[in-house]
Design a protein around this nucleic acid. Sequence first.
DNA 1: TAGATTGTTAATCGATTAACAATC
DNA 2: TAGATTGTTAATCGATTAACAATC
Lengths: 233, 233
Amino acid sequence: MPSAGSEAQDVPAADRRKRGPRLVNLPAVRRLPLYLGALRRFRADGCGRVSTAELALATGLSDPAVKKDISMLGVTGRARIGYEVKSLIAGIERYLGWDRPRRAVLAGVGGLGTALLCGDGFQPRGLRILAAFDDDPAVLGTRVNGIPVHGLGELSRLAGKLKPEVGVLTASPSRVQPVADLFVAAGITRIWTFAEQALSVPRGVTVQREVLSAGLAELLVRSSRNSGKNIAD
Amino acid sequence: MPSAGSEAQDVPAADRRKRGPRLVNLPAVRRLPLYLGALRRFRADGCGRVSTAELALATGLSDPAVKKDISMLGVTGRARIGYEVKSLIAGIERYLGWDRPRRAVLAGVGGLGTALLCGDGFQPRGLRILAAFDDDPAVLGTRVNGIPVHGLGELSRLAGKLKPEVGVLTASPSRVQPVADLFVAAGITRIWTFAEQALSVPRGVTVQREVLSAGLAELLVRSSRNSGKNIAD
DNA sequence: TAGATTGTTAATCGATTAACAATC
DNA sequence: TAGATTGTTAATCGATTAACAATC
């Protein structure tokens, strides 16, 4: 199992204070894709309007949470009527910048990297993958879902042409830091990494860690809280 | 791209109140795998002791956070000396229940499911995958990393023998709810799902959603907060 | 109108951070 | 001892929830 999940690489407290108070509610941002998924399904079903109560039901979230989250989008609804599905979709896509997908590359065309490339889920989620990189002769020179796989050594050369903003890092543990360094050298300023380990990157590069094992830890702890001694009441 | 990431399926507010105040710090639980990964690397390097400052550096977290998180494990260190790497590893594994891996099955042997099965990361993270399930003739009857792939129709029959506690759900969107129903019918009480959509399950079944696109949303919002108008000071 | 839904404001709750006393 | 590190307690911070006024 690759070690991925979902922790922002730590921003030390001191740095955050320098930037002043937090401007965005990140847990709310993380919920937006859930709304978006539900809304796209509503739209596919020919449903033109939704209430916050319906969205809460569809996403498994609470009604007040839905209201609060929508309020940050600047999309307005109408009392007694609800929201236009189309406006909400547009509002979320705009807020996340998913309406204008960013140029991206992926490094590490193993099992996870291949699975991500094949899913066709990047484009509707804000990323346009222009190329993949891996030195493994099994994939080097091939195409995965139409995306060419180059050697890692070609990254810096191709970066001049591709101008990627985002790097998806699905390399194996030992190559994670070297690949991160290649990303930085290629001018990439946003790294989405599926490795457990922390990355060392210069200031100005944003790292998002996807730590799958964190979800596994949470699942086991949440479930044993119930089966344990403290049954409700 | 499969739609995975990391949201606990919502526990409605009312239900949570019935259970009284929250007993565990879930964000802290989610950080434990990061410590564990760093500690295992320390151990592999022959390092017998660590301080919280070293752990903070290795994981990219803050020193007070490390102290607070360790305090919930019941592992004690020694002033001026630090903690024994071995004790911390044992403490985290015990806290998470990863020292006694749970019987599990996986349904949906597509790109993501295969990647998870091949990684050999389940066992050291609390899960023992006994079997996989998928109706796709391309994988049905084969073995992935030594794990047999059965038809979904055999799940309930095999469950009597395998007695799985945990179900990993990597099926494609349209099969997610049906597979969840099969899991529940098979007596599975903990579901780790990689689908964006909410699952409908009876009370007593714990669902952990891994929503990868949430991480993507967070990455883009966090990074544009810096490149936008509000540059620090 | 009456009633349902939006959308905001205030209250609660929980996590993180900072500070510091205890310990080796 | 002096100094560094643990480990806890208090203060701060931020997110969630609840309540309700505004609106259609």
